[in-house]
Amino acid sequence: MEKTKTPILLHKTKQLSEGRHMENLVLHLDNIQKSFGGLRALADVNLHVEEGKTHAIIGPNGAGKSTLLNVCVGRLKPDSGKVTFDGEELTGKKPHEIAQIGVARVFQTPEIFPELSLLDNVMLPALSKRDGSFRFNPHLAMRNQNEIRDEAEHILGDVGLKEQMGMVAGSLSRGDKRRLELSMCLILHPRLLLLDEPTAGMARHDTNATIDLLKKIKERGMTKIIIEHDMHVVFSLADKVSVLARGKIIASGLPEEVREDPLVKEAYLGTAQE
């Protein structure tokens, strides 16, 4: 669990340089099913994600994309099937346990601490990761607080929010809130980062800034799953794309392949009968 002190975004892809990354699958979703009452949100989802890659999940509204992420982070328990990350089963674990394993999530509507300062917002996840289950030793708890503060400032600098770090988070613009939430996830040094529509509702230049930011993170070799509607974002970031429609993965592959797939076109554009 010990991490290096290298500046977070400049951390080059050491983990990837092993040369066997083609078959290095780290996240497995096997036969996931989930229904809400009569509605079948996830029919039978199988998804395998390679380590260090960015895997985009696209699909029409109501296809079950957010449900899928909720299953991964323990917010929802699947009716059947299991999720394993790096050999550890995530199904049935509590959200905080999954977070401790190294899975972080950026939500569709930013989940931040609106009443606290930006700096506190970023320091808190680092503290919770450190003291996760429970630690109540005031002396120990105070000891490396300065270290955490430095790292939080550094990350805020990376996402371009350092000048505002004394501000109350609730007063940020929506795009800045997303960037703040992203930095809150980055300080956790996650091994798997789940991004739920990170650019939804953003203006074009904010979207581009976010893409640049995510590209920088990409260099760190963190595994990422990204849910996105904006094809521009998907094709700028994703190594692999899966298409989810009516609770099933209907296509999976390189971005260019998926774009040309007739099934995908049908799911997005509808067929004549509909």
């Binding site: 509590k94 905080h96 977070a99 931040i112 606290l116 506190d120 990761k129 289950s133 956790l188």
Partner: peptide, 16 residues
């Protein structure tokens, strides 16, 4: 204070 502000987020950052 984090719990007061957003308990959900505290959970998802790994705090019980």
């Amino acid at each position: 204070r984090g719990i007061k502000s957003n308990q959900n987020r505290m959970n998802y950052t790994g705090l019980n």
